[in-house]
Nucleic acid binder design. Sequence first.
DNA 1: TAAAAAGTGTTATAATATAACATATCAAAT
DNA 2: ATTTGATATGTTATATTATAACACTTTTTA
Lengths: 132, 132
Amino acid sequence: MALSAEKLTNNQQTVLDLLEKSKEPLKAYAILYDTQKKGIKAPLQVYRALDKLIEIGKVHKIESRNSYMACEHKNCNSSTSTSFLICETCDQVSELTQKNLPSYFAKQSEQADFKYAKHNLEIYGVCKDCTK
Amino acid sequence: MALSAEKLTNNQQTVLDLLEKSKEPLKAYAILYDTQKKGIKAPLQVYRALDKLIEIGKVHKIESRNSYMACEHKNCNSSTSTSFLICETCDQVSELTQKNLPSYFAKQSEQADFKYAKHNLEIYGVCKDCTK
DNA sequence: TAAAAAGTGTTATAATATAACATATCAAAT
DNA sequence: ATTTGATATGTTATATTATAACACTTTTTA
């Protein structure tokens, strides 16, 4: 079955719903706390749901923050590369949608004799709302 | 006193020496284990040394691996942006030295109404040695 | 040389993530 | 329809990564 058509289990859907409602990325134990009323009782249940959601591209991990966010793109089914814009003022994170980043990075990598496969880019700065 | 001329303390020098000798990035508790003979006894001593070394730009953290490496550049005294090439085969990490990355990212960010300050880039792939 | 700043050593604990194992669910292939 | 294999679940325990708090020492600077 194609990844994009994957049917989610209860736990997976519960975690995804929460992340989609959240304005900021959430940490695993925050997710645990917020989903206890939905029957999720242990960290492993959260991490397992996250693992699957990340695998099918519905969720991304922001490595430098140990936090997780729902993918903003419709029907995203890639778990490969990620590019974030992280506001240092309000902690909101958005995704940089730049189709040519991979080819740009592939070119840069090649100059260092390195074969590009995927990337994680975390840009820090100030978002639109916070510059006002 | 200028950062680049900063004199390191014993613990800081011990941790930096170890990282400079290492071929791969090291994890904090690996650093702790390897420096016990030099008098470092507790995690906090490692983390405090790392914090300082990162601050003065001598060490970088690879976020997605929770590991630390000595900066490869001479007299690096910037703790702002980082760009890594991470080999998925042998786990060696090198730094991408690309002067124009910040301006490139600044431009990309601007298109999303985001004010660029700094970045962390982690490129995954296969290094020169491992493609042979 | 006193005050301020930075670092130390130590114990305890917080925060993040995985191991192990028995059981359950579900799709698909006979 | 039923076995089979893959995937998910629930649970307890534990590993890994990182920081808090506090008393004390050293170094820098004014």
